[in-house]
Design a protein around this nucleic acid. Structure first.
Length: 331
DNA sequence: CAATCGTGGGT
DNA sequence: TACCCAAGATT
């Protein structure tokens, strides 16, 4: 959960997750759909699938106990170099290093690294240095201290150098350029993208579809729809797309408005329509892995992404149901 | 190696 | 507003 996600964001999800799946065995036995529900709103949903798959592997191949070496941990789905180092050092007390965004920033400043820190060369060197530092009796504490230093004092903007315990050892502090480090390649802007989605009602129920297990919002439920050209008319394309993806003919799509949603690499403009399916038709899916006709309010109980949540709100679905069941109001 | 994969907070 | 960033991993 912590991969690319702030601790404060993770905490309520972590409590709910552990309440549902307190053991590796319980997660291994779980229904993947239920795991996705607990991940709703957290993002990077492949982590949920990988975590469940890893739990199954641990039960099947490791007697239900996590392997106690960084090398073996890395063989599990979703566990890369950082996570293996974190588990090995913090949970097992092994002298294994870790390098995350915080550590990169701390090292770049302390050591005065003024070249691109995203290069393979520099990253490799940082891992070597972390490996030298972690030797000792409390490797987990050393690793967490490095990350905490980066998160609390040695922050990306306005680092609190005055309170830093290693100020006098810091090259960037001496040079006075801490705020401009580390140097990174700038990331491309999110590309504009348009899509339509439809509330299709029949006999008081609406049609929802499940996305494939790979790609954007993998495995999540959404309103049926699809991508359209940047200059196309949403209303015209809506009926055509529904015919393509669910095999339903609809009449008179009426726009309920647009929502905007920013992903890391996409800027989505989603136009949402209400329409009715012509009677006596069967759903014929294309691209989706499942579909259901559900009572509208129960959509909130299925795993879904933030963009779908916005569409729901636009269509008048409130989050009263999930708010009742959750300690914290879902985003 | 570059692209992909979410979302929320901060400046 | 626009951009950066977060206890990264996978393809």
């Amino acid at each position: 959960m912590l991969q690319q996600t702030r601790v404060e964001t993770v905490i309520p999800y972590w409590h709910r997750f552990l309440a549902s799946y307190p053991t590796v065995e319980s997660l291994a036995r779980a229904d993947l759909d239920d795991v996705y529900v607990l991940w709703t709103g957290l993002g990077y949903y492949s982590r949920a699938r990988n975590l469940k798959y890893a739990a199954e592997t641990v039960v099947a191949n490791h007697q239900g106990r996590l392997p106690d070496s960084a090398e073996k941990l890395r063989e599990l789905k979703g566990i890369g170099r950082y996570t293996a180092g974190a588990i090995a050092s913090i949970a097992f007390g092994l002298e294994e290093p870790l390098v995350d965004g915080n550590v990169i920033r701390v090292f770049a400043r302390v050591l005065g690294i003024r070249t691109d820190t995203t290069s393979k060369d520099v990253i490799s060197r940082l891992w070597d240095i972390a490996g030298l530092l972690v030797r000792g009796t409390r490797p987990g504490d050393l690793n967490q201290a490095l990350m905490e230093l980066g998160a609390i004092l040695c922050s990306p903007r306005k680092p609190d150098c005055g309170a830093c315990p290693i100020q006098k050892h810091c090259d960037a502090y001496v040079q006075g350029d801490a705020e401009s480090l580390p140097i990174k390649k700038r990331k491309p802007k999110p590309k504009p993208m348009r899509a339509v989605a439809a509330w299709i009602e029949r006999d008081g129920k609406i049609l929802v579809v499940r996305r494939p297990e790979k790609g954007l919002m993998a495995g999540l439920w959404e309103f049926p729809g699809g991508e359209i050209g940047l200059k196309e008319e949403g209303k015209d394309r809506c009926a055509e797309i529904l015919q393509e993806v669910v095999g339903l003919g609809v009449r008179d799509p009426i726009s309920a408005g647009h929502i905007e949603h920013i992903f890391t690499h996409r800027r989505l403009d989603l136009e949402v329509f209400r329409c009715r399916a012509r009677p006596a038709q069967r759903v014929a899916r294309s691209g989706y892995t499942d579909h259901r006709w559900i009572a509208p309010n129960t959509f909130l109980e299925l795993a879904h992404a933030g963009s779908t949540r916005k569409a729901m709100r636009l269509l008048g679905l409130t989050d009263e149901i999930s708010a009742r069941n959750a300690k914290r109001k879902m985003p």
